[in-house]
Design a binder for these strands. Sequence first.
RNA 1: GGCGCGGUAGCUCAGUUGGUUAGAGCGAUCGACUCAUAAUCGAUAGGUCGGGAGUUCAAGUCUCCCCCACGCCA
Length: 570
Amino acid sequence: MQRHLITAAIPYINGIKHLGNLVGSQLPADLYARYQRARGNEVLFLCATDEHGTPAELAAAKAGKPVAEYCAEMHTIQAEIAKGFRLSFDHFGRSSSPQNHALTQHFAGRLADEGLIREVVEKQVYSNADGRFLPDRYIEGTCPNCGYDKARGDQCENCTKQLDPTDLIEPRSAVSGSTDLEVRETKHLYLRQSALKDDLDAWIDSKTDWPILTTSIAKKWLHDGDGLQDRGITRDLDWGIPVRRGDAEWPGMEGKVFYVWFDAPIEYIACASEWADAQGHTDWERWWRTDKGAEDVRYTQFMGKDNVPFHTLSFPATILGSAEPWKMVDHLKSFNYLNYEGGQFSTSQGRGVFMDQALALLPADYWRWWLLSNCPETSDTEFTWELFQQGVNKDLADVLGNFASRVTKFCRSKFGETVPDGGTFGPQEEELITNLDTRIAKYSEMMDAMEVRKSAQELRAIWVAGNEYLQAAAPWATIKEDEAKAAMQIRLGLNLIALYAVLSAPFIPDAATRMQDAMQPGDTDWPTSARAALTQLPEGHAFTVPDNLFAKVTDDQREEWTAQFSGVRE
RNA sequence: GGCGCGGUAGCUCAGUUGGUUAGAGCGAUCGACUCAUAAUCGAUAGGUCGGGAGUUCAAGUCUCCCCCACGCCA
């Protein structure tokens, strides 16, 4: 039995994510987790909310709530939506957890002990009215280059010129609009990533099976310009993990917190600790410490391409730098972007379909199937309502749903709601078995390789194989000449439904459950032989005719939704 | 501006280290069937693989230039 540690990129707390975010990490991670569990492997599938940082503080302020309260509420909302999409996390944690506080402080202490932390005194803009330091992008003013009056302190959106906050003419706080700003000196900790560059480089080089997208991004950051730069890991904020050196105070760093990018990936580890606590045991290091049982763990991360630098460089730098035997990622599956009706999905602009909205329209399976079977694996891909409608109607309603419907209803009308007996397999059935054995092997191979779209293609082909068989066998014609043969044919059809339930479960778990409820198979293990799978329902076994598994998306719905989601949210 | 990923049938996408007549699904057209959610099954049509030059016996696949779209620039 293999052991799989699987993490999906942790979503930021300040709002509900859109379908592009979902398909880029959580959904394919869930597909893989469900598949590995179905294969009988041990799986720990973790995700969490990323809760620290200025955007969270500002979102809380906008909502008129204390930031801790705001984060707690948003975490609950995101957890509910995750459940709605049937994301089968073993634990959905929080980067603000006590476990992550302790672990983040531990890592910082270790890095300092290894000589990989340096202290830097730098100048930052302080807003007296807001009573806080302002990150560069929260300072607005007039661009000295083009005169645009809403340029941000890091860059002018109008002329794209890189800026320093002190370049701005008439700078003001983007938080309060106050112009009562001053430049203050403040001390911060920097992680000496540059010292780890060669180690990281060698580590990336050893990952020959990673997607090109992943390694090319990592290599670019390692070698571009002056190479990998040291990064600040602390901030002058209230909301975050207090800077401590392990268990000890960090002199001179009082009142400061770790920067969100530093503590967020550590939550992948802390989340396992949270999971163990929630399970009532302490046995989580066997997933994360190679000296404590994680030697045989295979660790896979899922994320969108924008997250690749953090997962290939920043987080590994933290782990390598600690000089402790933490588990490093084995495979990193990254995704491109999903576009929406010719443009981008955008959280900030409220463009596209958000996770809560999607679930209000249709059950999770519709979204899971379409998004996974069209996921942006090798290039950006396009979501349009027309493509969505065509895809789910054809694949789910017509090919799979209708198959279950025609088989069960035909059986009910001719033989009743029990598996009919009589007849034996002939050439057509043998051909189907051979075909299915090949296709199931291919499907499993693609799932093992995390080839999401190709897996979906194979699964669909397996569904189609059932219709092909039925069309050729034509039990509705056979029954007029040879009732026993028709019984055998439809018995095979009923077994196919039970087989489809098992094979389809990673993609469409709810429909799979309904197929199983209808067929009541004794065995729901992953099939090793099509012949065994297609003879498992005993003759005389009772079943029920399920309601249609999938209703079609109508043209009226499509038009309504296209219009409803043409603008921006809120 | 620099860098990165792409530009393959009407649409969405596959095309391994260059090698026989470039593939899939959808959509379209025609046919078969009538058990089923007017579903299914079969067949057909559709591409000078963004443009140009080059390397090679052979290029969607390598090199160079150009055009277009998208992304990143700590």
